[in-house]
Simulated scan of single mutants.
Amino acid sequence: MTDSKNKTGIIILAAGSSSRLGEPKQLLAYNNTNLLKNTLTAANLVLNAAVILVTGSNRKLIEEQLDSTQIKISFNADWESGMSSSIVKGINDLLLILPDAEKCIVSVCDQPFISNSVFESLLEKYHKTQKGIVASAYAETLGTPVLFDRKYFKELLHLKGKEGAKKIINKFLNDTVAVPFKKGNIDIDTQEDYNRLIYKP
């Protein structure tokens, strides 16, 4: 999964219970696979990146479908407290397996149009601009996936409750650059969202 040149982590957040959907969104059929595996495939195509999947609710159901030789599976026992706990768990585990990590990308599992090129465009912009935060831009906002330089790891580790990566983006906008992510605004929270994705005209 990693090698000595590896300085990048990709943390995929998949701990939520999908309460508005009524079933685990991670396992919804999509693109001849499911939403979670679609995201993991994209992440695994990024060269020299350590991929960490943070699970929580429905842990066994999700983990039994995965190949743990390609990724590091990280269980967040505190998932009910909000997204911040999964980010904290992901960063802590990244630093355990990759103590000299220079940067990490925080991603979610329910953006169906994610691809390895989205992740790679964040990395390219990071190297080109030397900015500390590279966020995806869609629907007049900045969001996931988002890359953070190591200097922001401490900020991420201090997130609480339902706070997410956007809090850090907004706090350090002067050190943030955007990369367009077409259809990044499409995510799956409800059955209606999923129906629109699957049964689009």
Rank of each mutant, 00 (worst) to 15 (best):
D3Q: 14
K5C: 13
N6P: 09
T8N: 14
A15Y: 12
S18A: 13
S19W: 13
R20Y: 12
R20H: 13
P24R: 06
K25C: 11
Q26Y: 06
L27Y: 08
A29Y: 14
A29P: 06
N31W: 03
L36K: 04
K37S: 07
T41H: 14
A49G: 03
L53E: 01
V54Q: 04
S57R: 13
N58Q: 14
K60I: 12
I62T: 04
T69W: 02
Q70V: 08
Q70S: 12
I71T: 03
K72V: 09
S74H: 01
S74K: 00
A77D: 10
S81C: 09
G82V: 01
V88F: 05
D93S: 04
D93V: 01
L94H: 00
L95H: 02
L96N: 11
D100N: 14
E102H: 12
E102A: 15
C104A: 15
I105G: 03
V106T: 07
F113L: 01
S115G: 07
N116H: 12
V118K: 01
E120V: 07
S121V: 04
L123R: 00
K125G: 07
K125C: 10
K128Q: 10
Q130A: 11
K131M: 09
G132H: 08
G132W: 03
G132Q: 07
Y138T: 03
A139Q: 13
A139R: 12
E140Y: 09
T141E: 06
L147W: 05
L147V: 10
F148Y: 10
D149N: 10
K151P: 00
K151F: 02
F153D: 02
L156N: 08
G161S: 13
G161R: 06
K162A: 15
K162Q: 14
E163T: 06
E163Q: 15
K166Q: 12
K171C: 14
K171Y: 08
A178G: 05
K182F: 11
K183S: 09
G184K: 00
N185L: 04
D189H: 10
T190S: 13
Q191P: 08
E192D: 12
L197E: 01
K200W: 06
